[in-house]
Nucleic acid binder design. Structure first.
Lengths: 122, 122
DNA sequence: TCACAATTATTAACATGTTAAGGAAATCAT
DNA sequence: ATGATTTCCTTAACATGTTAATAATTGTGA
């Protein structure tokens, strides 16, 4: 993940914050549970990350009026911009990994890791 | 690592503390730099871990009298006992992973991971 | 020898992982 | 309808990863 963190260092955003924003960028707005699941974060972590992202103005949190235990988290324009500006760069980093291993090996690695951790739907 | 952590939960020792003890159990006593390297820990982490292990009476730290910047870290009998008592159990957990993937796949996984991170001599 | 650099380790500050405890809202059984 | 349970989330407490700043010691060159 070092190259990813390096890319993000200039934004003042961490790897996990970036992951949260990416998931939100794909899905628009999500409830906390789904978001935690897709970003592979535990609840307590997400709570803190959401707080800092909210303070940075990159997301908004609103109570679900139907079930007021729930929160809806939405990415702001500023947050979306951060993702958009670096999507290509991130894709290239991943492509770099893939190239380093070769396509076949890359697929093998993903398969083997998936076998070890059936939980991660990624 | 979940099974490892579960095994360790009864000892009150964490995964990293266990790693430090394991390295020490193999090598007797080591200077901090070498220990950090072999346990794949950064200096600040090792400093803290050493403090807690020392407080638990599992290691001892002594200044190197020739170069007084350095410290020698040694495992105590109590620390050695913790490792000895669980070495078999840990080996079985690893064997379990290996069995889950199959021997060939297991080797493949190690190879692929090594290609991604040439640094880890493990 | 003495200022300056390099080495070794610690401390600080922040973010996260992890487990446990707590709090508010909804659900359910009676 | 109400008390117990469940669900969803937050807080708390501790350990670690990570980067930067400091401290202590040693090494070096003029």
């Amino acid at each position: 993940m070092a190259p990813i963190r390096e890319m993000l260092s200039e934004t003042g955003i961490t790897e996990q914050q970036w992951r949260v924003l990416r998931v939100l960028a794909e899905h628009g707005s999500l409830d906390t549970s789904t978001l935690a699941d897709r970003a592979s974060l535990l609840f307590p972590s997400l709570t803190r990350i959401a707080t800092t992202l909210r303070n940075k103005g990159l997301i908004t949190q609103t109570r679900d009026e139907i079930d007021r235990r729930r929160q809806l988290i939405e990415i702001t324009e500023a947050g979306q911009k951060i993702i958009d500006d670096r999507a290509d760069q991130a894709a290239q980093i991943v492509a770099g990994f893939r190239a380093a291993l070769g396509d076949d090996n890359y697929e093998s690695l993903l398969d083997l890791l998936a076998q070890l951790d059936p939980g991660s739907s990624n």
